[in-house]
């Protein structure tokens, strides 16, 4: 067994207990502040953007953290669903929830196709195959006329919810998206803690053994892949709804890299880690220019002022630090500190 699995396992072990004790009160605090946020002067669209990425990272973690599969192609589901949602909202004027369902359906079907091919190989090949197939999806979106090429889809209308609740106001959208994200998060928590989730854990820990006990592990992995792709597509559709555009950035492999980073920073195989990771990485990307100016002022090194243009480089450095010395992520380390000896 590899050290990787050991570390993942230890952190996922503890999290359920933590959740039940202190974290109930913590979740209430977070929930209340989310519900009140628009009234205390926080810009709702930024929170929504973070929520979409948080959901994306949680869906991704369903695979890497709880099944042990590294998909390097999740941008295809996230960004692709955004395009599908945007296209139907723009050209057909359908209700928002139908658009979201279409986006999720797209993610599920694409997830089935990519997943069926990728599970034919294991380990590092799985990652390379998902990456390559997602790149193919990227090129297809780049060339198909309806996506608007390099410009992407702009001005996607939010439409009406159920045909009669207009989503024009940020506030209505805020509560709608918040509700959907919360439900999706609860669904992921349940999947992880279901009889099915137990088998996924078994596959992550020792796949040959799970096979020898009579489980068709490829089928379990495929279902996990489709589920994860669908939730990622949900996140992508919601993001297109909130921001009103869909671009190639969201389909490109660097987006797959971002979601890996969010999950890694927060803690692979923890339930709350990816959320925390998403908050940190999105905030960092938004604020990095200011941080650069601050650093330039403190240290007197002019170069820091250009930090705003170097998001990928900063991302790369965080990747390196995380892999070398921070593999359990924030939540993983937190739970270890709180429960020493485990």
């Amino acid at each position: 067994m590899s050290a990787f699995e050991k570390e993942l396992g230890n952190s996922s072990k503890n999290i359920s207990k933590i959740l039940k004790s202190k974290s109930v009160s913590w979740s209430l605090v977070v929930l209340t502040s989310l519900l009140l946020a628009p009234f205390i002067g926080v810009y709702p669209v930024l929170i929504l953007k973070i929520l979409c990425f948080a959901l994306f990272a949680c869906s991704f973690n369903l695979l890497i953290g709880f099944t042990g599969l590294l998909s390097f192609g999740h941008a295809a589901f996230f960004g692709g669903a955004g395009y599908i949602f945007g296209y139907f909202m723009k050209s057909w004027g359908i209700p928002a929830e139908i658009g979201i369902i279409l986006g999720v359906g797209f993610g599920a079907i694409l997830g089935y196709v990519i997943g069926s091919l990728a599970i034919k190989r294991q380990g590092i090949y799985f990652a390379m195959i998902t990456l390559a197939l997602a790149q193919m999806v990227y090129f297809i979106f780049l060339q198909t006329p309806f996506t608007g090429g390099e410009d992407g889809l702009q001005g996607i209308p939010r439409g009406k919810l159920f045909g009669f609740i207009p989503l024009d106001s940020d506030l209505v959208t805020y509560y709608f998206v918040l509700g959907v994200v919360l439900l999706a998060f609860l669904a992921i928590v349940r999947i992880v803690n279901s009889p099915y989730g137990q088998i996924l854990r078994a596959i992550k820990e020792n796949e040959p053994r799970a096979v020898s006990l009579g489980y068709d592990t490829n089928r379990f992995k495929l279902i996990a892949f489709v589920t994860s792709a669908s939730f990622s597509a949900l996140a992508g559709s919601l993001k297109a709804l909130v921001l009103g555009f869909a671009t190639l950035t969201d389909v490109h492999w660097t987006m797959s890299g971002s979601v890996i980073l969010m999950t890694l920073v927060g803690g692979l195989g923890t339930l709350t880690g990816p959320i925390l990771g998403a908050v940190l990485i999105v905030m960092l990307e938004n604020k990095i220019g200011e941080i650069g100016f601050f650093l330039a002022e403190v240290t007197g090194i002019q170069w820091f002022e250009t930090l705003g243009q170097s998001v990928p480089m900063v991302t790369g450095i965080i990747f390196i630090i995380c892999v070398l010395s921070f593999r359990q992520g924030i939540v993983g380390i937190f739970t270890r500190v709180c429960r020493p000896g485990r």
Partner: peptide, 10 residues
């Protein structure tokens, strides 16, 4: 893979 991805980005 992740470490060399980080190196790539840098």
């Amino acid at each position: 893979l992740l470490l060399t991805l980080g190196i790539t980005l840098v």
